[in-house]
Design a binder for these strands. Structure first.
Lengths: 234, 234
DNA sequence: ACATAGATATGTTATAAAACATAATTATAA
DNA sequence: TTATAATTATGTTTTATAACATATCTATGT
């Protein structure tokens, strides 16, 4: 119970994506009653495509990817989750099974709240409704933009986009240049819709062009403006 | 005023996507006060990318495409709208400019309601909130699925998908086989992420394989199960 | 430390789809 | 009607990227 409280405090401390501060104290109590903590190992699946959605998930610690498996083992990363963000609710609202899967990128701590309760709270509290409307709307804009980026840009542009997405989502370390996420080339590939080979190859082209440096999975961005240029044009 | 009433009756008659039956009579009155009718010519733009969203749009008659212009004149159709469906609200909820554009496929009649009023009504009526949450959630699932379909399927699968989308959205004529929409090969191409040449070429392959027949822009589906097969596998 | 598997790197070949070219139709307008 | 533009149709060439093939490097566990 103590650890739950601490986790929840973390939720409170976030200013963005914060449903906690929206709630009445009675509503908070009802959440605490059913709130469950879960630890996930690296690459462990949180939920999978075609399953029935039942919980609202909140990432407290770690990193999570929302992805979709396509034909021939190729998988596409759709969205990245950072603490403290909520996910897993879309399919429930759409009254559909999940169309995508969620897995932990690295050892992660998550909370779950039954969607049934979330719906009850939403009906009592329109701010909570607005929270989800806002999130869904932003995600939909992002996905629509993704569609064009992934289908029309060439490999270099797509990899540049992927790196910019990583910057946006997880930011830099204290040196203001090293990405605060270390992902496999394979994941980088499925984020930017290309084969692993091409992710590796294009990454080393970027190194040659002094746009980035690479040390294992550590990526330092030397020239972010150039990345934006590549993203925009060829 | 009479014509507006008639248009609104049409809205009432629809059982799906129906926000009208959700409203109190006072709320309906406030909508009627500011509701505006607009006629759009074929290919006329309703709103464009980067503009600020101000209205909720409802298509009363005709056909509308939501699309996004990419690099080098290539455009991607993201969604198709049929009567009576609502659109144009996502960007407002996301507090962003439009990321996509909307244009009439054919001469169309639309209604507009200021989003300001829509928000007021939402705050008074949680069913209206749920309507948008449901729509946004379904659209997001669709876009996420699109991402994988368009990036991972080959040309034949993508064209098959496009035809199935047309069936789903606009259905068949009285013969139960002719598509109830006549679109240019160019539009068919930007629906399925390929060049116009390849849309034409692949369409005539489908004709050779007796999956469809083509008479100008009139497309008859002879073998829908085969289309689903092509969509699913190669 | 060593063995083994997994990840990264890079060169080569094959191929799907774009780009280009040119007709043949079909609309649209003068 | 004729002229002009737009759309549809096909054939040919080029190209971006997948697929394949190895080699090297790096973890992980014994």
């Amino acid at each position: 119970m103590e650890i739950i409280k601490k986790a929840l405090e973390k939720v409170v401390s976030e200013d963005l994506a914060d449903i906690w501060s929206i709630l009445e104290s009675d509503q908070k109590r009802r959440i605490v009653e059913v709130f469950e903590m879960h630890d996930f190992k690296k690459n462990q699946v949180i939920y999978a495509e075609r399953e029935a959605p039942e919980n609202l998930w909140v990432l407290l610690k770690g990193k999570v990817k929302i992805y979709k498996d396509g034909m021939g083992g190729r998988s596409q990363i759709l969205r990245l989750i950072r603490p403290v963000q909520y996910f897993g609710y879309r399919a429930f609202f759409a009254e559909e099974p999940y169309v995508s899967s969620a897995a932990a990128f690295e050892p992660s701590t998550l909370g779950s709240i039954p969607m049934k309760l979330v719906c009850d709270l939403m009906n009592e509290n329109s701010k909570l409704m607005w929270f989800f409307i806002h999130e869904l709307s932003r995600n939909l804009g992002g996905s629509d933009t993704q569609i064009v980026n992934l289908t029309q840009k060439h490999i270099r542009g797509r990899l540049a986009d992927a790196l910019l997405v990583l910057i946006e989502n997880y930011g830099y370390e204290d040196d203001d240049s090293t990405l605060r996420i270390y992902m496999a080339r394979e994941d980088l590939a499925s984020l930017s819709n290309m084969t692993t080979s091409n992710a590796i190859r294009t990454l080393s082209l970027f190194v040659n062009e002094k746009i980035i440096t690479v040390d294992g999975r550590r990526i330092r961005i030397l020239n972010e403006p150039m990345l934006r240029k590549i993203s925009k044009f060829g």
